[in-house]
Design a protein around this nucleic acid. Structure first.
Lengths: 321, 321
DNA sequence: TTGAAAGCGCTACCAA
DNA sequence: TTGGTAGCGCTTTCAA
């Protein structure tokens, strides 16, 4: 930069980085700072990390569907916590590359850590990332991946809680909404499976109900409701639950007498309906905890891989069941 | 990399980049590709863009509050569209740095374009970014910033539409909810101002109503509602509107007879309430359009700055007003 | 206290 | 058709 501002590039580096191993005279410091301000000099992160051989970048692939309430808040908290630990968080918008191929794209940025929600990253992908210098790979999803730390989030437990609750309340013919919106399979499949498991070996039965997130689709489902002979429904989440509950009520089906309805996510809005919506509350790990896991892993890449169950699910019983 | 795999680094570069100016024999290509796969070689993006002098990175600062439905979808669409144009989208989690300081942090990454939502970036910041090589800076907010392209999103028009609608329907004493949650001022202030402007010079009046996003806060407001003597309320958005409407109904206030309620954002859930929630529908530009604006600006940085009004607001009249 | 120079991984030019 | 090499901006070691 401003070697036109009197000194050598080395000196500039010393001054701007406050290198303690080297003493620079006050007048020189001042001149450097002044020149930097004047020229609007900003160091070049790529050059720096190229030289250093590592970065402080934590890469998180952007979700392939717009993040929901819960995940959005979680991500935000995480970002903040990592920032406090002096990491730079980068959400990388991977278009549609499948798992291990996406890993290559991420690896090009040479992040110090990668945090991958969902399935799709295999042991191959983890290996690519590690070889390219990532000191920590953390997956957040239903199962651990070889070579990576894992935050185990099994959405089946959400369905399981819902199913068990409905069964306990005396319901036997249970519908499970599966959103038609693509990209949600990741959550909806395990939730459905969880309900199945909860009812396995009992006299209860499970019926899969595809549903689009619009009033028409809900009305159509409601119109054929009595034909389905269901006495309860787990509606994937609170939003679908609200939609379906309204459609059922409009079709003259009384909630919870004729059909019990339960959602998930414990949104505030669910409490506003009448009857108030029962729901499965989901506890996500705090962003701070996850940030600390990442930091630990980065500082000591040799440490044994951690795997934490990290999704707490519990029923909040209100009036709709 | 694999100069241990037989050839020179230059040849590797040629092969992997499919450099057309140079012919490489088929056997050599094969050997290079094989070695690359075997070693799990991934090019180093930083080194590449250092050498090239530019990157294809579009930087978007991550929002300081978890993104809402509308913005989340917009961002997602934008990311996809930019991806199609072969840009890499990076959301940079700037912690709490104020505007122009944050610009320096962004500039370190030498993005080819920067897309900044909200206020907070000043002409200084724009200058820093451009000097550091950004070929396009696009702000998305209420007013244009010197040196940057602008997508003009004036949330005052949202409030204005709501205010005018309520006035037309014969309402005169109008409350405006202002969320207590921090980080929302960016939107709530202009919306409030818009209502004020709509009623300016009429016999209507505007009352500011702070409200937290929880049932207690809503109940407290509802309890003192009659004392406020209002006949209508614009509730910031649909979520606050749903919350408040329920609290008012629980307090025995009839909607819309005694008090009209209108929200904003046109969420699907608002249609599920009874009475159905009137709302201000907000049209955001499509992600594709914005992506094309960015691309144009990058290809021709000399072109005159574009400024587009980009927020359409129109009332969707349902039953609550 | 400061400067010269090497080298991080990559690509583009020139020579072989 | 391939290889050698300079140089992108930075930090760090070594010398002055």
């Amino acid at each position: 930069m401003a070697r036109l501002a009197g000194v050598s590039r080395a000196t500039v580096s010393y001054v701007l980085n406050n290198t303690r191993a080297v003493r620079i005279s006050e007048p020189t410091r001042r001149r450097v700072h002044e020149a930097a301000r004047e020229l609007g000099y900003v160091p070049h992160a790529a050059a720096r990390s190229l030289r250093a051989g590592h970065s402080r970048m934590v890469l998180i692939p952007a979700p392939s569907v717009p993040a929901g309430r819960l995940y959005g808040r979680f991500l935000h908290e995480l970002q903040w916590a990592l920032g406090r630990l002096d990491y730079t968080v980068v959400q990388h918008g991977t278009i549609g590359l499948p798992g291990d191929e996406a890993a290559r794209a991420w690896a090009e940025l040479r992040p110090v850590a990668v945090l991958v929600p969902g399935t799709g990253l295999g042991p191959q992908g983890v290996a690519v990332l590690k070889r390219s210098g990532a000191r920590a790979v953390v997956t957040v999803g239903p199962e651990a991946v070889e070579g990576a730390h894992a935050l185990l989030m099994d959405h089946a437990s959400v369905g399981h809680q819902a199913g068990a609750h409905l069964y306990e309340r005396g319901r036997r013919r249970i519908g499970v909404v599966v959103p038609e919106e693509s990209g949600l399979d990741m959550f909806s499949r395990p939730r459905l499976e969880g309900v199945r498991r909860a009812l396995d070996g009992t006299d209860g039965s499970v019926t899969e109900l595809p549903l689009g997130y619009d009033e028409d689709s809900a009305a159509r489902l409601a119109a054929r409701w009595r034909g389905l002979g269901l006495d309860a429904v787990f509606a994937y989440n609170d939003e679908y639950a609200m939609l379906l509950m309204r459609a059922l009520q409009d079709a003259g089906i009384s909630i919870p007498e004729e059909t019990a309805v339960i959602g998930a996510d414990d949104l505030m809005l669910g409490r506003l309906l009448r009857p108030r919506l029962s729901t499965v509350h989901i506890d996500l790990p705090s962003g701070r905890d996850l940030a600390e896991l990442v930091d630990r892993a980065v500082r000591d890449p040799g440490a044994p891989l951690e795997r934490h169950p990290a999704l707490g699910a519990r029923v909040v019983h209100r009036e709709s069941t």
